[in-house]
């Protein structure tokens, strides 16, 4: 499996997405009107889809990065180990994303 390109692609998506993080923080510092604009966006269907994609990109990139750490430390180079690490990052990234969104909806999505 070749997931290294996915690691890069998620990294680039996260890079661009920091604009949203900055926008959110600046809006919070600016006042209620600016903050309401951000919430109107993040509350919309398209906004939620982007945030869901961003959550997945972040979780996948983190787990895929931990996979690289394992390799940096000199472990996990056997074919079956590489496969296990890659599938672990792929499945773990999706699982964490779904878990985060279930919790998010449970505690705050209805607000």
């Amino acid at each position: 499996m070749a997931l290294s390109i996915v690691h890069r692609a998620t990294g680039i998506a996260l890079y661009v997405g920091t604009l949203m993080l900055a926008w959110w923080l600046i809006a919070a510092a600016s006042g209620p009107a600016a903050y309401a604009h951000v919430q109107a966006f993040t509350g919309s269907i398209i906004g939620r889809l982007i945030m869901f994609g961003y959550t997945w990109a972040l979780m996948h990139h983190m787990l895929s990065g931990i996979r690289h750490f394992v390799w940096d430390l000199g472990y996990g180079f056997k074919a079956n180990e590489r496969e296990a690490l890659t599938w672990g990052a792929l499945i773990g990234g999706i699982a964490l994303t779904v878990l985060i969104w279930i919790i998010a909806y449970a505690i705050g999505g209805g607000r």
């Binding site: 809006a27 505690i107 705050g108």
Partner: peptide, 9 residues
């Protein structure tokens, strides 16, 4: 998570 759906204040 703490800030989801909360207002600016």
């Amino acid at each position: 998570m703490m800030l989801l759906g909360r207002n600016q204040a």
